[in-house]
Amino acid sequence: MTDHVARNGEWCPGWGDRAAHVALRSDLTADHVTPVAAGGREDGPLTVRCRACNSAKGARVAP
């Protein structure tokens, strides 16, 4: 998470209809690229999303 903020600032790439936007650092979460519930691995690749976008994504795979 710290590396993401150092490179990109407090930025969330968005999800679905929600465009990329600034998010408070305390609101950023790690998100599995392929959710564990959809067959992803617990130690699989992660991305950063704000809590709202991470919750909206749920167990779906990014388009």
Rank of each mutant, 00 (worst) to 15 (best):
Val33Ala: 08
Met1Gly: 11
Ala52Val: 13
Gly39Pro: 01
Asp27Trp: 13
Arg7Tyr: 12
Ala52Asn: 15
Glu42Tyr: 09
Val36Ser: 01
Thr29Gln: 15
Asp17Asn: 15
Arg60Gln: 10
Val61Glu: 14
Val33Lys: 05
Arg49Leu: 15
Gly39Asn: 07
His4Ala: 07
Ala23Arg: 01
Thr29Asp: 13
Asp27Phe: 06
Pro63Val: 12
Arg49Ile: 03
Asp3Trp: 05
Leu28Pro: 03
Asp3Gly: 15
Asp27Gln: 13
Val33Trp: 10
Asp31Ala: 13
Ala6Val: 09
Pro45Ile: 05
Val33Cys: 08
Trp15Arg: 05
Thr47Gly: 11
Val61Ser: 10
Pro45Ser: 06
Gly44Gln: 07
Gly44Asp: 09
Pro63Arg: 15
Cys53Met: 04
Arg41Thr: 13
Thr2Ile: 12
His4Met: 07
Leu28Val: 09
His4Thr: 06
Thr47Lys: 09
Ala37Trp: 00
Val61Gln: 14
Ala62Ser: 10
Ala37Thr: 00
Asp43Trp: 11
Ala20His: 08
Asn54Gln: 08
Glu42Leu: 07
Ala30Gly: 11
Ala59His: 11
Val5Tyr: 04
Val22Ser: 09
Thr2Phe: 07
Arg60Ser: 13
Val33Gln: 08
Ala19His: 11
Ala62Ile: 15
Asp31His: 07
Pro13Asn: 01
Pro35Arg: 02
Val33Gly: 02
Ser26Phe: 10
Val48Ile: 14
Ala37Met: 00
Gly16Thr: 04
Val33His: 05
Pro35Ser: 02
His32Val: 04
Pro45Ala: 13
Gly9Lys: 04
Pro13Glu: 05
Lys57Arg: 14
Asn54Pro: 00
Gly14Trp: 00
Cys53Asn: 03
Ala37Cys: 05
Ala19Asn: 12
Gly14Ile: 06
Gly44Ala: 08
His32Thr: 03
Thr29Phe: 04
Asn54Lys: 04
Ala6Leu: 11
Pro63Lys: 04
Ala56Gly: 07
Val48Asn: 04
Trp15Pro: 01
Asp17Lys: 15
Arg25Leu: 09
Ser55Gly: 12
His32Glu: 06
Pro13Tyr: 04
Cys12Asp: 01
Ala19Lys: 08
Ser55Ile: 11
Ala37Asn: 01
Val5His: 04
Arg60Asp: 12
Cys12Gln: 01
Val36Met: 01
Met1Val: 14
Arg49Tyr: 02
Ala19Tyr: 04
Glu10Lys: 10
Ala20Ile: 03
Asp3Ile: 06
Asp27Leu: 11
Pro35Met: 02
Ala6Tyr: 08
Ala38Ser: 15
Arg49Glu: 02
Asp43Lys: 07
Asp31Phe: 00
Val36Lys: 07
Arg51Asp: 14
Arg7His: 09
Ala56Lys: 11
Ala38Leu: 00
Cys53Tyr: 03
Ala30His: 14
Ala59Cys: 06
Ala6His: 07
Asn54Phe: 02
Ser55Trp: 07
Ala20Leu: 02
Leu28Tyr: 03
Leu24Ser: 12
